[in-house]
Design a protein around this nucleic acid. Structure first.
Lengths: 176, 176
DNA sequence: ACCTGAACACCGTTCAAGT
DNA sequence: ACCTGAACACCGTTCAAGT
């Protein structure tokens, strides 16, 4: 059980981090986040020993929602289309919430939330379905998908460019 | 004409930057580079007003060599294979010299060296050849190629992974 | 005129002191 | 026992003072 003031400080930190990261991106100053939350930097480090543990907490609900979408899409689209649609949604998140792309692949987790396992479970269902339907190469792995989408999100200037690069990747650069 | 001491300082700075960037990557401390060159930080800023202008100078000879390779490959391989081979060489540079990938797309240039124009010239020759030969999609642009390779270099852990991701991108994720 | 490094405002991180 | 922020060693960048 957390002491009441600690609980309140933690909540303030997450709220402040959400705001500051939205404004300045995932490399935002930790001291600035602590300042905005009205606590000292030591308090931030006590609750979140690494920057990643803070980012994971901030992005957690968004990542869970995205993983839930995998099931929705699988239920209402043919397997190949479901995978394609989900990858575009993943890309949209990675481009919009800069830093979420790197966060989603983190393998060691604090706060009992194994982000990469959740993401892998969501993606592998879609990937297996699309593979069995003959829509995608059988040798594709979940890591291939995540790294390709992550790379595109980092290199593309905006979502329009990102969607084009993802489409090119899906279809291949070679002539049909 | 540069004063002799200025010339010497500039040379020391480029040599020190080459070493430090090789050790610590493109985000290396500028003060550390200046320290290693035996000059004050102001001297570094006088010669290189931005970090990019320093990186461009450090990578210049490597980028010029890579661009020259485009002609070599075009002369000895069929157009489609020449493009593929050059993209893999580009990727190898981007993975090995972290920071070169971002540098190669810089559009404004100091020291009379327009890196992006040189790169675009090298790539567009190969791309046009491969397009006419029917090896790649006709709607591909040089920017598509650079952004895809750059993204892969950022997301792939090592060159082995990078080569796989580039091959997947060339062939497409969809089943043949 | 050109070069220079001490100085400034920041950053991430720690740990002695408080409650 | 747990929380805390002053303090430390760094960073990028500038500009008054030197030659």
């Amino acid at each position: 059980m957390m002491r009441a003031d600690a609980r309140r400080n933690r909540d303030h930190l997450v709220a402040a981090a959400t705001d500051v990261i939205a404004e300045e991106g995932p490399e935002a100053s930790l001291n600035e986040i602590a300042r905005r939350a009205g606590v000292g930097p030591g308090t931030l480090y006590r609750h979140f020993p690494t920057r990643e543990s803070l980012l994971t907490t901030v992005f957690r609900t968004r990542i869970e929602a995205l993983c839930a979408r995998a099931g929705d899409l699988a239920a209402k689209l043919p397997p190949g289309e479901a995978l394609t649609a989900w990858l575009h949604e993943l890309l949209a998140h990675a481009v919009t919430d800069r830093g979420l792309g790197a966060t989603m692949m983190l393998t060691e987790q604090e706060s009992g939330f194994d982000c990469s396992a959740l993401m892998a479970a969501a993606a592998s269902g879609l990937l297996a379905g699309a593979g069995e339907a003959g829509s995608v190469r059988r040798d594709l792995t979940v890591d291939d998908l995540f790294q390709l989408v992550h790379g595109i999100s980092l290199a593309a200037g905006d979502l329009g460019r990102g969607d084009r690069l993802l489409t090119l990747t899906l279809e291949g650069l070679r002539a049909a």
